[in-house]
Write a protein that binds this DNA or RNA. Sequence first.
DNA 1: TACAAAGGTGCCAAAATCTGGCATCTTTGT
DNA 2: ACAAAGATGCCAGATTTTGGCACCTTTGTA
Lengths: 237, 237
Amino acid sequence: MNSRTRQDAIIRSLRRNGTTTLDALGQDVGASRRTILRDIAALRDDGFVIHADRGRGGGLYLDPQSIQTTPRLSVAEVFALILGITSMRAAGYLPFSALADAGLAKIEKALPSDKIRDLRLLLDCLYVGPLAPQVDTSNLGEMDPELLPAFETAFLQRRFLSFGYRDAKGAETHRTVEPQAMLILPPLWYLVAWDPARQDFRHFRMDRISTPNCVEDTGFRRRRVIFEAGVRPIRYV
Amino acid sequence: MNSRTRQDAIIRSLRRNGTTTLDALGQDVGASRRTILRDIAALRDDGFVIHADRGRGGGLYLDPQSIQTTPRLSVAEVFALILGITSMRAAGYLPFSALADAGLAKIEKALPSDKIRDLRLLLDCLYVGPLAPQVDTSNLGEMDPELLPAFETAFLQRRFLSFGYRDAKGAETHRTVEPQAMLILPPLWYLVAWDPARQDFRHFRMDRISTPNCVEDTGFRRRRVIFEAGVRPIRYV
DNA sequence: TACAAAGGTGCCAAAATCTGGCATCTTTGT
DNA sequence: ACAAAGATGCCAGATTTTGGCACCTTTGTA
């Protein structure tokens, strides 16, 4: 059993038993006291609030409120995710039928780890607050058409993109990045890109980007028929 | 560098370079040829379609179409997730303001792994098809009120729940599970529960559940003030 | 107040896993 | 025919994880 699986088991055990002891946990998940302690430290580091009472009659238990304070997806957000997918599908946004009758099966498979920790966190407490009757998606936002040509070239020819950027604090910087995707968080557009200088993905608000232009061929070569025919269309939705 | 990070680096390198060789990849991500091969095997196992041409003039490259056939979230679904969250918030569904101006920051943090593989997959190709102008979330579905009392007791008192279940093929089974959450995938309700017999989480469509009742105290003990005051409210939204 | 039971920490050796190198095989363009 | 490129199996070394131990702190109770 790897450490992730064991940590999931610990969370389940805590949920199931309410309050337990280190030794009982060890018995339950089949690991030593020392390992359980290490895992609990890791889980706490991950944002799980696990209370521990020392002394005689002490024990370990999950904080019922912890879900609201973890850095993970909040319950409401996960719920929104699921509802989001479903309603998008219902409205014809999604050409796929992956989520049809399978319930959560696809979502389970889709989430990065094979066992869904965040869904498990969701399970801890379902409270989403009052629901409004209708989702309003008007004003999805628009991209400044002046930016389009440079972006289109960058994406289609897989070139680096260079531009000026004014961050949230108003500081002006110059970036050269590998454009990866365009995202809309209505009403704002974002460029998602790999920044080689910072060795990380960064997100740039489109309305803060100025004077973009392509600076370099990234060396992408079309070698196979599949590439000849399959240069992917970039569509700005 | 751990294997996850290295595999991400491999995917990026493949994207950036179009076609490369094992040795070039090894140079790029700083690992041996053998390790690269192992990682590529793992990535393929994970659903990435990585073509390899043997022989002189061969090379490795990502299948541009692969994104549509992986078992992970499709691009459109990830997009729907993001749009879903945002529009839910805009409509007042979410009491939190976590996603306010932070763009994807919260989503990044929230996803199970510290670096978001699915988002990276999303980055590989952004194509969501034509968008409908309006999301329709009417008919969110309702729960059969006859089921409520047993479920309420099961959740509030943390008891096992026993019921008859007719699966998708019409087969009738009897289940005894630990109820974890209620989910709505409009218009359907689901019970999410840990099935001890199967040692896994299972999802049960509410309309396929019959004669539920609580069968056993799970041994949850209220030991601390925090539990006395904090028995979490289960609200059926 | 002493004591026992519970969580917490540091350290080290054993166990498990990961990595790199090597030999060898298969495939394919020239 | 040959060379270049991917694929596989194996093994030893490196790295990480795990378990055991000693010892500490905290706290309810006799």
